[in-house]
Design a protein around this nucleic acid. Structure first.
Lengths: 131, 131, 131, 131
DNA sequence: GTGGTCTAGACCACC
DNA sequence: GTGGTCTAGACCACA
C-alpha cells in the first residue's frame, strides 16, 4: 500500500492517513482479515509519530472499518461484519452534500459530477474487479 | 436563506457557514448578482463572531463564488463569470474520492451511492427547477 | 466538585477521571448546560497531563454525556438531549453483570446486593433530591 | 460451561475469562468442590495462551473464589469456606457505583436500573433454582 | 513485540 | 484562552 502524507496540508496527518487506508481497502490493496502494520512500524515508515498513527487507527475503528485487538494489532473487518447502518448512510449523504453543492455552484452539470463519481468508482474498483 | 450552525460540530463554524451559503446558492435561495448580508448583520443573526463570517466570505471569494467589493458588500458571481477550470474539476474529484471510498468500504453498493448522489442533487435543485 | 486521583491504581487515570465526573453529574454537583473546566486548568488542578484530561473528556463525549465545542469548552448535555438508547441499556446491563455475579459467588444474597444498589442510588441522589 | 472470548474487546482476555468463570459458578454450571479444567486444556479449548488462563486462575484465587492445589488443579471453594468480608462488600459497592452513576446520568430511572439488576439476577439463578 | 497510558512541551486555528 | 494536533520519549501490561 502506498501512503503519501502531505505534512503542510490543512488536513491533519491522522486524517490523511485514515483516508488513504480507506482508499487502500476500497482499492483492494488490503483484504478483510488482514492486519494493518503496527502503529510503530507504520509511523517509522511514514516518518510521523506513533501517536498520530494510533489516532488514525482509532478513527478507523470508530468508523467500523477495523477493530483493534489490544496488543496484537489492527484487523480489517470483513464486509459481512460491517452492517451498513442507516446512520452511516446518512453520514455519507451528509459528506456528499457539500461536495456536490460546490460543484454545482462552480458551474458543473449534473452529468459532469456523475461522470466524476463513476470515474472515482472505477479507479477504486480496478483491482477488485480484476481479481 | 436558512443557515443553521451546529456549535458542537468538529467542523469549524466559518466552514459550516461557507458550506451552507454554497448550498443556498445551489438551491437557488440566492441568485447571481445578489448581495450577501453584511458581515455584521449576518454575524448578529447567527450569534457568531464577526471575524468568523468575514473569514467565510473570504473563503467563498477564494473559491471564485463571490467577489467582495470593499465597503459595499459581497456579491454572488454569475455562472458566466465562473469559469469551471480543470483545477476546480480536479478539486471536486479529490473531495469526492474519500467520501465514495468510505461508502464502499462500509459496504455500500455503487447503486446506493449513485442514488444518494441523485437524491442530494434533487434536494438542491428543487427550487431551481421550480422557478 | 471533588476529584481524587489514585495514581497507583490499575484503573487508568483518564478512566478514574471519567467515572468521577459522571458521579459528580449524577450527584448534582454539576448541572446540564454547565461547562467543565478547561482541559489545561483541570490538568493543572489534578497534577496530571493535559492529554490525560483530554482523553477523559473525549470518552465522556463518546458516551453521550457531554459535547465538546472545539475551542470553547466541554458542555454537559441535558437529560432531554440524552436519549437512552437500547444499546446503552444493554451496555449498562453488560457492566452490571460481572459485578452482580461476583457478589453472588462471594456469598452475597440477592437482598444484600439490592440493598447495596439502593444505598449507591441514595448517595448519588442526595443533592438532587435536596434541591 | 460456555466461555466465549471477544478478542476485539478492550477488556483483557484473562479478565474476560475470570468474569465468565465467575458467571459460570454463579449460574450453577460448576459446583463447589469441583475442579476447573487444567490450565493447558482450557487454553487449548479457547485458543489462548496458557499464561493467560494461568493468570485468570490466580486472579480467582486472589478473590477467594477458588484455591489452587499445586499440580492437582484449581478447586472451587464452597460457600461455607467463603466468608463475605466487609472488605469484599465494600469492593462490590465500589464496583457497583460507577455503573449505576453512568446509568443515571444517561437518563435511566432508578426503576429501570433495579429491573435490570433483577434481570441479571434471574439470568444467573436460572439453573440454581432449577436444580 | 504490541498497543495502552502518561508525561512534557510545542505550535496552530478558532473564537 | 481554548481545544486540536504533533512530536519525543518513557514505562507497563498483555500475549
Amino acid at each position: 500500500m502506498f501512503i503519501e502524507i502531505e505534512p503542510q496540508s490543512t488536513v491533519p496527518i491522522y486524517e490523511q492517513l485514515t483516508r488513504q487506508i480507506i482508499e487502500g481497502i476500497a482499492r483492494g490493496d488490503m483484504q478483510a482479515g488482514e492486519t494493518l502494520p503496527s502503529v510503530r512500524s507504520l509511523a517509522a515508515d511514514l516518518g510521523v509519530n506513533m501517536h498520530t498513527v494510533n489516532k488514525s487507527y482509532h478513527e478507523l475503528e470508530a468508523k467500523g472499518i477495523i477493530f483493534i485487538r489490544a496488543k496484537s494489532g489492527a484487523v480489517i473487518r470483513s464486509a459481512d461484519e460491517r452492517v451498513l447502518t442507516l446512520e452511516q448512510l446518512q453520514q455519507i449523504e451528509k459528506n456528499l452534500k457539500p461536495v456536490v453543492a460546490e460543484g454545482m455552484v462552480l458551474g458543473a452539470t449534473e452529468k459532469q459530477i456523475e461522470d466524476m463519481m463513476k470515474k472515482v468508482f472505477a479507479d477504486l474498483q480496478l483491482r477488485v474487479e480484476g481479481v
